[in-house]
């Protein structure tokens, strides 16, 4: 799974589950908590989605705002959790 792929999935999930609008504007670096798109319980919804979709497992210590606060941060963080791919495509950003 590539950074862009994760990014697209997260985009779709946020649009469908938090914005309820497929065409909503959502910047890759926009703070999800800061702009109010997702609240603190919503982040937990997002985390379960990531665990299921990207087949990753988060430790308690992973669950800090800095790892999940924008689509770019999420995608980059997921890359560090995935086993290294053949083409090393997790080494993004």
């Amino acid at each position: 799974m590539k950074h862009e792929e994760v990014s697209t999935k997260v985009h779709q999930f946020i649009r469908k589950n938090f914005l309820f609008d497929d065409t909503a504007q959502l910047g890759d670096d926009q703070s999800l908590l800061g702009s109010g798109v997702v609240d603190s319980t919503g982040i937990l919804e997002l985390i379960s989605f990531l665990e299921e979709t990207c087949r990753v497992k988060f430790e308690d210590s992973d669950l800090v705002a800095d790892n999940f606060d924008s689509i770019n941060k999420i995608s980059a963080f997921i890359m560090t959790k995935l086993p290294p791919g053949k083409d090393g495509d997790h080494a993004v950003t």
């Binding site: 908590l33 800061g34 603190s40 992973d62 669950l63 705002a65 999940f68 606060d69």
Partner: peptide
């Protein structure tokens, strides 16, 4: 709950 709620909550109040 060291990770989960805290980091998120603090981010909220930091705004």
């Amino acid at each position: 709950s060291p990770g989960q709620a805290k980091g998120m909550a603090l981010e909220f109040w930091r705004q």
